[in-house]
Design a protein around this nucleic acid. Structure first.
Lengths: 224, 224
DNA sequence: TATTGTGAACCTCTTCACAGCT
DNA sequence: AGCTGTGAAGAGGTTCACAATA
């Protein structure tokens, strides 16, 4: 459990910063592995492809861990970011919908690091139920309430067809899953106390075709 | 090519809006399929889980297609959004890295709609090269330059391990691929004229554990 | 000297509120 | 009356620029 709020700086970290912390963390881990003891905001900025001022402001939300004239202690910074992100915790995951994408997620590196751990898989297809994916047996969706109520996963991943995404989400929420990561191309409704994030592959492509369709336009650079 | 700028309103559409347009488009398509002729910003807002004012402002960037007192013509709006997003175009895609994720993407619905079309798959593993995924034969990565130079894909999808993501990207860019969609957990460098978008599954999870780690904290609501 | 931490300016996106049109 | 389109206000995030400090 290890849930002590100990000496939290009462800071409210902006979402934009939260999204960048994992990027910094990955870079810092690599630097630490290469035995680099300290790092400047400038170097981290170059590696993360952002501005140095942004790096400093982002890190300042975690506290004041840098040393003026020297930079940041690499290992210390990794530890601080890990703590902020909860990487020192244990975060069981369940995945619902074991199609191509669900299978890929179940086997994904990202789903078994930083404290994450896939604990259960569910599908409705009898041909899939009972098979083993990434070392875990796929259970029938009807077992979801019982299994989830017992296992208390931290994250429910929805990788089902769009048509059943909302009802699957409702089942997860009803069984106290506090965070939902949705891959189905559907806008989901969840209570306000549930954290919902969406990953929509189709949207990413469409954003690209938007910019490309535009760049095809005569590059009439607007006058100031 | 079909590259006519015809009667473009010289508007610069905010990125935040661009990301929501595909969501509206999907909802509107469903309404149109259900024979709903018109839709109000309020109804669309409820379905997309955003504010009505935001819907109106977003749509206003495309032009003035609503009718006061009535709402928007559903079919017309779908057509306008499609046009803005380039959904009336042809967007060949190549996917590099045919692991679990690349395979899922190659079979994905989202990669074969809205004008998108997977045209080539590449991998470095001899055990994978030559196999067929989603009806397309996987070619060796060494064939990439020749194939890409000939096929001129609009989007290159990087689904390789992080270690080779940059070199694969360099090869795509060198062969004139104008947009890169990166799934590798690595910050990529591309020339400024190349559109780059990142999808990082691990980051999404870490953002969730961040919020959950926080909510575990005594909900000491900060004083104003 | 080198580099952090941060107020202030700036920019972008969101929300409000209402004039204007049907 | 009903609903859009938008100027203006507000909130959030980024960048600047520099004082503080090792």
């Amino acid at each position: 459990m290890a849930g002590e709020g100990s000496e939290f700086r009462g800071r409210r970290i902006p979402e934009a910063t939260v999204v960048r912390l994992p990027v910094y963390q990955r870079i810092l881990s690599e630097l630490a592995a290469a035995d680099q003891r300290t790092v400047s905001s400038e170097q981290l900025a170059v590696l993360a492809r952002v501005g140095a001022a942004k790096v400093r402001k982002d890190l300042s939300h975690l506290g004041s861990f840098g040393t003026r004239g020297t930079g940041y202690d690499t290992a210390l910074l990794v530890a601080q970011i890990d703590r902020a992100l909860g990487a020192d915790g244990d975060w069981p995951i369940v995945i619902v919908g074991i199609g191509n994408l669900g299978r890929a997620l179940a086997n994904s590196e990202g789903f078994s690091s930083h404290g994450f751990r896939v604990t259960a898989l569910f599908d409705a297809d009898p041909a899939v139920v009972g098979t083993t994916v990434g070392g875990i047996a796929v259970r029938h969706i009807e077992e979801l309430p019982a299994v989830v109520a017992a296992a208390r996963p931290a994250v429910g991943v929805v990788a089902t067809p769009a048509g059943v995404a909302q009802e699957v989400t409702d089942a997860l929420v009803a069984n106290a899953v506090p965070s939902i990561l949705n891959f189905a191309p559907r806008v989901l409704t969840v209570p306000s106390n549930v954290v919902l994030r969406n990953v929509d592959l189709s949207i990413e492509l469409q954003v690209m075709s938007f910019y490309q369709a535009r760049s095809g336009t005569n590059s009439a650079e607007g006058p100031a």
